[in-house]
Design a protein around this nucleic acid. Structure first.
Lengths: 333, 333
DNA sequence: GGTCGCTCTGTAAACGATTACAAGAACGAT
DNA sequence: ATCGTTCTTGTAATCGTTTACAGAGCGACC
């Protein structure tokens, strides 16, 4: 009643286990042998046990993508891109979600060690020495979609947020906006920090001063609403001090948009709004959201390629890829 | 250089492999023994090989959730619920995406066979005999989040879409709408079929006639826009024949909403709009979307519980759970 | 005809863990 | 002191594959 093993197939076909294995793996065999094995396999409904197989050959043919929040549409984009590359290479992709705490990521990388998958793409919100150490010690290749110090010597693919910020500011300035506010995510995260710096730099090149800056507790929609309320807080009854806002990602932007509408401010007439990530949400919301495309799809693709290349050759020197941003202009500006 | 095995730890600690295994699995041992093993483990950074372990014990402690489209926010809700239950039970959840073709699902279930995971929750868009057969033959428990004939004898958790449709229609009627259109997804899918039937029934109980009905090619945002254009097609220059639309899911609803706005129709004043799934998107879009809550979170939770129960006891008779819908009223009606 | 070489198949040893079983140590009771 | 009981530890079998190695069969060539 229980699952047939290769031994059962061998018995049914009247051949040895080695022959069964060979036929199944496409190694040379006589046509008659192949036929007998195939028949027995069909008859018993035999499916090889992938655990035993990968224990022996040392590979699982699975790759893992670890993201912090499946609810964030930017990860959907990335996931699709990664999926495409890895499945073309004959791997199966499994996605796991780490949650917002960095300890989860460290635990994931540690536990990842040989057995669950042949490689890992991880997109951590926060990076600390523990995480880097666990990546370096991990005996299956890891590529980080995010920013990690060069001296860590790990493969990375990251976005150029400062450049992205520059695009956003430039665009708003060209639309005649000068009083630009910023709704960031948590500043103790890698993207949060990068975007804060990028924003400051971009303002400087345009000789502008920040009129308002708020740090949301999270990169989520709810945090965007809350941050929006805070941003508008001082301006309950009069026009706000800003005529444009840049949000650190699309979810925050959309949350903010709701608060703007609730405060009777028209987008883009009263306040222009730029998001970041250019996720599916940017075209789903209303008005459609101008958003900085940080290349999530390309980052996913490149990360997957990097991972495959390193699985192929573990000795190659670590690559650090930066993908360049572009701006998707929509109705919110 | 390579990963230490249990034998290495045993050697380093000067004990036998059996003792190492026992300490690691919390079986009784003297304090001194435990201490030596722990030290050696720390020193070598030993992590057990999960393949070998699960080959021996016959369990992987992984469960799989298979969904058709990661971009659909309803799956995000479901995924979160499943994750919560299975991780509380000590399993790790992996998510794989099947794509819109049913062959992918059959292949997934077939290949799932013992080795990748201890169980599977699958939410198939289409169900045919092949799929049912593969589920029955699968030697790891499978629970279907969706509708499957009772005689198939598989555990299922499904939504009550007819009831959900009734709620939607009732609500619209109570808002004074009588000319209700329907934007369905593909009618050859399980949810598409159920919703079409539910819609027809609900209209009948209210003695209404369908004024327009369109079938989108997909359950996606893009298909929603396209379907929306089709729905409005006949009404290019004059008021449309309907004063309300029910969409078969939130993505379709939001796509449609964009077309309504593009056609200068106000939501809800000119056209009221009801979505289904009550996903995160329903509160993210603008105006916020009234949506039928088909209990995705609860379905996910129940499905996960069913799966765990069946893993526990493979002989229990198959359960068929139906979760009841409710309506989340928002600004679009 | 004998030997070489080639191809095909089977036997058995891994892979790295768990665990049944046996052996040894410690200890108390008689 | 001996025996039995209990507790701890080690040896070795096992899970289901792959694959190195060796043996068998057979044709070809000298």
């Amino acid at each position: 009643m229980s699952r047939p093993t290769i031994a059962g197939v061998a018995r049914a076909a009247g051949v040895s286990v080695a022959s069964v294995s060979r036929v199944l793996n496409g190694l040379p065999a006589t046509e008659e042998m192949a036929e007998r094995v195939r028949r027995a396999v069909d008859e018993l409904g035999y499916v090889p046990d992938s655990r035993a197989r990968s224990l022996k050959v040392g590979r699982t043919f699975q790759l893992t993508l670890a993201v912090a929040d499946v609810g964030n549409p930017v990860y959907v984009t990335m996931m699709r891109a990664v999926e495409e590359v890895v499945s073309a290479a004959g791997y199966r992709l499994v996605v796991t979600t780490t949650g917002p705490e960095i300890v989860d990521e460290v635990a994931l990388v540690r536990g990842m060690a040989r057995g669950y998958a042949d490689g890992l793409v991880i997109s951590p919100l926060r990076v600390d020495d523990d995480l880097i150490k666990s990546i370096q010690e991990c005996d299956v290749p890891v590529v980080v979609a995010g920013n990690v110090p060069a001296k860590a010597g790990v493969d990375t693919v990251r976005a150029n947020s400062p450049k992205g910020m520059a695009l956003a500011v430039e665009h708003l300035v060209s639309r005649g906006r000068r009083r630009i506010a910023f709704l960031n995510g948590p500043a103790d995260t890698v993207p949060g920090e990068a975007r804060a710096k990028g924003f400051a730099d971009a303002l400087r090149t345009h000789k502008l001063r920040a009129v308002a800056q708020v740090e949301a507790v999270d990169f989520t929609f709810a945090a965007g609403r809350e941050g929006g309320r805070e941003l508008l807080g001082g301006a309950r009854d009069h026009r706000p001090a800003f005529d444009a806002v840049i949000a650190a990602n699309d979810l925050l932007a959309v949350g903010l948009m709701h608060e703007l509408v609730a405060a009777d401010l028209a987008v883009p007439d009263d306040v222009a709004l730029v998001g970041m990530d250019d996720s599916e949400l940017a075209e789903q919301c209303f008005p459609t959201l101008t958003s900085v495309n940080l290349g999530s799809a390309e980052r996913g693709r490149r990360a997957a390629e990097l991972l495959l290349a390193r699985i192929e050759d573990g000795e190659r020197s670590p690559r650090r890829i930066v993908v360049h941003p572009s701006l998707s202009v929509r109705r919110s500006t």
